[in-house]
Each structure stands twice: as C-alpha cells, then as structure tokens.
C-alpha cells in the first residue's frame, strides 16, 4: 500500500515509503522533522500549514505527500540562509507582527510570495493577499505593517 516518494525540502533530497493518505504536512512534520509549518484546521482555511511548492504558496494540509513526489518544497525553516534571516522574517520581528507565533510560519510564507508577485502592494492588496491565513492574536495590523516594511526595504 505504501509508495516511494523522493522530493527536495529546503534544498535537500529526501526519500521515504509513505501511505498514499499521508498528508504533506504530516510528512514534513513527523517523517522529515520540519515542524515549522503548523496545523490549525482541517478545511483549508487557516493557512498555518503554508509552505512553498515549486515556488508557490500552498496549504500542505490539503495535499497528500505523494502529490509532492519529485517536487521542491520550502518550509519556514528554509528561509534563513547561513543564520541570516529572510527580509520578511526580519520585518515580522521588527514590526511585532506576531504574538503566539502559531500562524507566523504560514503567514511569512504567504507574505513572501505576495511580494514576489507584487513588489509594491497597497495595504488593500496586502490584506486581500493574506485572506488565506488566519491570525487570532494581532488583528493583522502589524502584519500589514511588516509586509509593507519588507516591500519598502526591498525597493530601497
């Protein structure tokens, strides 16, 4: 019943025998050990599990690991390079864009893609771009500030 999958996660190749029903989020967290992406719901609403799949933000709880076979995954753990934070991580820190931190890995992954697609978003575009990520702590205002600050810094 199991199936062999091979995929790249944060630049490194992994290969495992998995049940087809194993969700990508469980594969990342429990089989490979990247516990940065979190599970906040089962209906693909909250976005805490957001990772990048072949460069696009996806909800890894709404995907089977077998679907990611042969593909390239980046999780929050893959953003900082050589101990240097990604500008979006830095912006979230500077702007106090997180409190409990549970939604943060997903929020940062979506925000990163948002700026890659639209480097100079309006506040309205930022707010709409983050519709797939719920935060219960911040009221989103500092998150919007962080994305705006990251955009300004990248443009500077």
């Amino acid at each position: 019943m199991t199936r062999k999958i091979t995929l790249k996660i944060n630049g490194k190749s992994y290969s495992h025998e998995v049940e087809p029903r194993l969700l990508l989020i469980h594969y990342l967290r429990e089989v490979v050990g990247f516990t940065g992406p979190h599970i906040g719901c089962e209906t693909s609403i909250c976005g805490a599990c957001t990772v990048e799949l072949d460069g696009k933000a996806v909800k890894s709880c709404t995907m089977f690991a077998v679907q990611a076979d042969g593909r390239n995954v980046t999780t929050i753990e893959g953003l900082a390079t050589d101990g240097r934070l990604h500008p979006m991580q830095e912006a979230f820190w500077n702007e106090h864009a997180l409190q409990c931190g549970f939604c943060t890995p997903g929020m940062i992954m979506t925000s990163k893609e948002l700026l890659e697609r639209s480097p100079h978003p309006t506040d309205d575009e930022i707010r709409h771009g983050l519709e797939g990520n719920l935060c219960r702590c911040t009221g989103y205002q500092h998150i919007v500030n962080a994305v705006r600050a990251a955009a300004a810094k990248a443009g500077a």
Partner: peptide, 9 residues
C-alpha cells in the same frame, strides 16, 4: 476564488 494558496493549486 478562495485565497491565493487555493488558487495556486
């Protein structure tokens, strides 16, 4: 449709 992550997939 939905949100950006949903539209990506």
């Amino acid at each position: 449709i939905g949100d950006v992550q949903v539209r990506n997939v």
